[in-house]
Amino acid sequence: MSGLSQLLDRFLGRGEWAVTVPTLDGPLLPNQGLEEAEPFAGLAEADNLVRTEKGILASSANRLMRFSADGHAETLQEFPGEITALAHARGMTAMAIDGKGVVVHGGLHDGREATGEEARRLSCITALTFLDSNTLLVANGSASVPASGWRRDLMQKSVSGSVWRLDLKNGRLELVRDGLAWPAGIATTGSNRIYVSEAWRHRVLAIDLATTATLPVLEHLPAYPARIAPAFNAGYWLTFYSVRNQLVEFILREETYRTRMLAEVPEAYWMAPSLGSWRDYREPMQGSQLKQMNVLKPYAVTRSYGLVVLCDQNMKPLSSFHSRADGKVHGTLSACELGDDLLVASRGGSRIVRVASAASGKRG
Rank of each mutant, 00 (worst) to 15 (best):
C336Q: 00
K316L: 15
E117H: 15
R203Q: 13
L310E: 05
A41M: 13
R227P: 05
I83E: 15
L4R: 10
V265D: 05
A325S: 12
A234R: 14
R112N: 05
G33M: 06
S360K: 13
A181H: 08
G141L: 02
K328W: 14
I97H: 10
L166G: 06
D25H: 12
L296R: 03
G55R: 11
C124P: 05
P317S: 00
L43K: 03
R351N: 09
L12F: 09
G171V: 02
V196T: 12
S197K: 08
Q292M: 11
A356Q: 04
T332M: 01
D9F: 13
L218W: 12
F79P: 06
P80I: 00
E16K: 08
P284N: 12
R258E: 11
G15E: 01
N233I: 06
P22M: 06
Y224I: 09
E78N: 07
I56M: 03
F240P: 10
E249C: 05
V103Y: 04
M1E: 04
G107F: 00
N170A: 01
L310G: 05
R354Q: 09
S197W: 14
R347M: 14
D132W: 11
C336T: 03
E35K: 01
D132E: 07
A272P: 03
A213W: 06
G276P: 15
A139R: 04
V344L: 01
R10F: 14
T75I: 14
G185M: 04
Q286I: 11
P30T: 14
W200C: 13
T212I: 13
P266C: 00
Y195Q: 08
V248H: 00
E264T: 00
T126P: 13
V217K: 08
Y241L: 08
K362A: 12
G42R: 09
L168A: 07
E249I: 06
F250T: 15
P266A: 00
V353L: 09
A263P: 02
D208E: 02
V204E: 08
R260D: 13
D132T: 08
G106Q: 14
R121W: 15
E118R: 14
V50I: 08
P266H: 01
Q313V: 03
I207T: 07
